[in-house]
Design a protein around this nucleic acid. Sequence first.
RNA 1: GGUCCCUUCGUCUAAUGGUUAGGACAGGAGAUUCUCAGUCUCUAAAUAGGGGUUCGAUUCCCCUAGGGACUACCA
Length: 521
Amino acid sequence: MSKSLKKISILTSASSVDVFLLIRRGRMEVRVRYAPSPTGLQHIGGVRTALFNYFFARSSGGRFILRVEDTDRERYSDESLDDLYQTLDWLGIKWDEGPVVGGPCGPYIQSERFELYRKYAEQLVRDGKAYYCYCSPERLEKLRAEQVASKSEYQGYDRHCADLTDEERAEYERQGIKPVIRLKVPTEGKTTFHDILMGDITRRNRDVSPDPILLKSDGFPTYHLANVIDDHLMGITHIMRAQEWIPSGPLHILLYEAFGWEPPVYCHLPMVMGKDGQKLSKRHGSTSLRDFREKGYLPEAIINYVTLVGWSLDGSTEFFSKEELEKCFRIENIHKAPGVFDYKKLDWFNGYYIRACENSRLEELVLPYLVKAGFIGENPSEDELELVRKLVPAAKERMKVLSDIVPLSAFIFVDEPVVDAAVYCAKGSDADNTLSALEKGSEILLSGLKEGREYGKIEEDLSSLAAGLGVKVNGVFQPLRVAITNSTVSLPLFDSISLLGLEETEKRINRAIGILEAKNE
RNA sequence: GGUCCCUUCGUCUAAUGGUUAGGACAGGAGAUUCUCAGUCUCUAAAUAGGGGUUCGAUUCCCCUAGGGACUACCA
């Protein structure tokens, strides 16, 4: 307690530069952040970034910070912000500093830091590192179109406003044009930044996007400005973000230099791709965590699998709990190359975790799906709960996702008899012996059930019957199965009967006998 | 077009200057089982290509090819 208070006071009292000196000397902990933009639902790629940051912070005794980068008010939505919190909550990822929980470097929502960015941007203008630009969006669009059409080697802003005179500026201001602030990118020299994974990455300054906008005409900062300022002010030590950001690395370094700040350490994470090698997107399948949650993936499966694309401990350990990852995650084990997201492997992990799930927990997890399917009521009765308690152990090893419970249990709640007599015939049986198998089998079965014989004994008797009729064991079981579960694929026969109840079982069998008799006449 | 990044089985990955290049998913075959699933066993499958350096390279260097990302008053 007192220790953390001390750290906070260091942070708040020391200047930003001092904070970095402390970090450099190893006196201060690792500070990393996940800084999503609430412009859509949380997706696999973002969550992977969050996870890597979180696990790196935990495994190195550092702090994990959440920052909301809501500077794009066109695309912002409350729903996205809710989804961010819900998703992290569902995964069990707690942030040490950030919205809701607060912290010494707050506020952690960029729109609440609005004034800050203008202040810094204007300082850059005063220092001659940035300038006001009055170019209209129309002019910029035309410029871009021309550059694309001519396949010009040089693409980007033409620095039209880089050297405006005071008179020209005053004229624009008089016209009421709201300017943006652009960074002056040097045209000579080169800029290098260090990436833990990639090593040094160098780019000629002339290849850095010319004079990017720092402050938009609405007064909001762009990503680059806000990101650099906040990372610095929040004492971020390591920036772990997707590799798609590599090209803006040099630009960010230029910004740190313009401010006279020490840049943090970079670690660009390999991207998550779809089967076709393109950046993972909706056309590859579900990408939002909400989708995965709704289909019935467990957080432990998502965490386990997602962490394994782009990272591995030793190449052979495959199961990791969140707690284990919080201990053993090493930044050095992150892969460089992009990885393809394999839905099948996720299914395999999910099936594994469902099978490993305590029955009582699985009952609760499965309940909403049964309610949604209309199989049981919103406020389940004790009988319904009892049914679920029987269902779960029978179904659990057959489930890949929680929603599988619906097709697996549908026969109990929806009775759609199979009227095609051929379906009742097992391979190697014909209509005649299938009918007698069903008739004789049902006698054995129903009387056995009524007498309360053990399932194992009844099963033996049914097997003997098959032998007597000269058919395979399935020649007896299949017609019974189809009669009882309305399907050739089902839970084990005795589980199905026990779920259905004796009365309903008998009804369905007799109905099936009727169907087969009608067919045989 | 320009810049930058990447490259081990279909996929996720391990390993080392000297190995039969290992594991997992998916695939195939079999066993078990009343169907399905699960479980178990077995199986096929890779160092992108070309040059070097070296006694020896998949590993180090160079080139080529392929893939990807970026190139917004979006992040």
